[in-house]
Simulated scan of single mutants.
Amino acid sequence: MSAAPPPTVVDIRQDEILTGEAVALDVQPIGYFLRALGLLIDVVLAVGVLILFSLVASWLLGQSILDVSVSPILTILAIVLVTVVLPTVVETATRGRSLGKLAVGGRIVRADGGASGFRQAFIRALVGVFEIWLTAGAVAAIVGAFTPRSQRLGDLLAGTYSERTRTPALPASAPGIPYPLIGWAQVADVARLPDRLARRTAQFVSHADAMEPAARARVAASLAAEAAQHVSPVPPVDPETFLRGVVAVRRDRELRALDLEAQRVAALTAGATGAVRGFPQR
């Protein structure tokens, strides 16, 4: 009877969440200072709404449209509206996005990565009365500084965090082998190129388009003269084309070597697993 296969172990990093299909999703929580800035923007807007409400109420009282006895009721109503009702409605309607979070590129989501709803927004707003308004944000700042995802107390109780929605732009795809060097690339020997010179050459190729023409030609000639001592054969092309060909050949061969290494490890792992399963059991 063959032994049962070992259980699959899924390694989940801090910035990953596991879906119901056991797929690890890479998520990026927004940073502490950006989150604080977004919260500050929301607080300033809320204070502006509260001041506007107070001005309108004062005008109504001055015009004798409202009785003075309702002034305390209006004050309580304005505070509840600004600190609880308005944040709850905004976050529920926008699926976790307020003006402050939009400004810093964040969005409130559940701990499992799903969109937050009314319950999460209400809990966050209710706890925010204490940690943001009554303590001038001190509790939110302290708790956020000691939690991995910069979560404030309301987030911990609601099971939410602020996810980054603005991802950095992907770098441009690496250029291929220049057309005049396609045949040369099949026989070129670039393995003797020192790593330090290879890094300098790759940096030049990635930034060459942004350089001044004179500086670009000068640096290309200097690097090509150094690289030519370690590359064989040296193709009869201009220095920059030569450098681009060297970088492309090294990159392609390194990627090929990594793929072969991964395949070899996978084959060894599969062979070892098959040997264990085929071992006769006593």
Rank of each mutant, 00 (worst) to 15 (best):
A136D: 03
I17R: 06
R264W: 05
L34W: 11
A275Y: 11
T83L: 05
F130K: 03
V43Y: 11
P72E: 10
G137W: 01
L60V: 04
V80N: 05
M211S: 07
D189R: 13
W133F: 10
L181T: 05
I65D: 06
P280H: 12
I177P: 00
Q63L: 13
G144D: 00
P175F: 01
G144V: 02
G159D: 08
A145Y: 07
F242H: 03
L34Q: 14
S98G: 08
R199S: 13
V129P: 00
D11A: 11
A267D: 14
P213T: 09
T92W: 02
T241E: 11
A125P: 01
L86W: 13
A270H: 10
V129N: 04
L52Q: 10
L99Y: 06
I123P: 00
R218P: 03
P194R: 06
A141S: 09
P171N: 10
A78G: 13
A270T: 15
G114N: 14
A275N: 13
Q263V: 15
D195Q: 13
T201C: 14
A188D: 03
G271L: 14
L39W: 10
A248L: 07
A267T: 14
A125R: 00
A220D: 03
D155R: 00
V249G: 00
A140N: 06
V80W: 08
I132D: 02
L55F: 13
V139Y: 01
P171I: 10
S54Q: 15
R256F: 09
P148F: 04
S150Y: 01
E226L: 09
A24S: 12
V47S: 11
T241Y: 07
L50T: 12
R95T: 10
L81H: 05
Q120R: 09
F33V: 11
L45T: 03
A141L: 15
R200T: 05
D195L: 12
R124E: 04
V85R: 02
A22Q: 15
T167S: 14
A22W: 14
G245R: 06
G278Q: 15
G62E: 08
A266H: 12
A227C: 10
S71D: 12
R216T: 01
G114P: 01
V23K: 09
I30Q: 05
V68N: 11
I123T: 13
G271S: 14
A198Q: 11
G38R: 00
V237E: 08
I73P: 00
L99G: 08
V85T: 08
R251Q: 10
A78V: 07
V85M: 07
G154V: 02
F33N: 08
T88Q: 01
L156F: 05
P178A: 04
V23R: 12
T88M: 00
G159F: 02
P236Q: 11
D195F: 07
A227I: 06
G154Y: 00
R282Q: 15
V143N: 00
S232D: 15
E212M: 10
V44H: 08
I177W: 01
S162F: 08
T160M: 05
R166F: 12
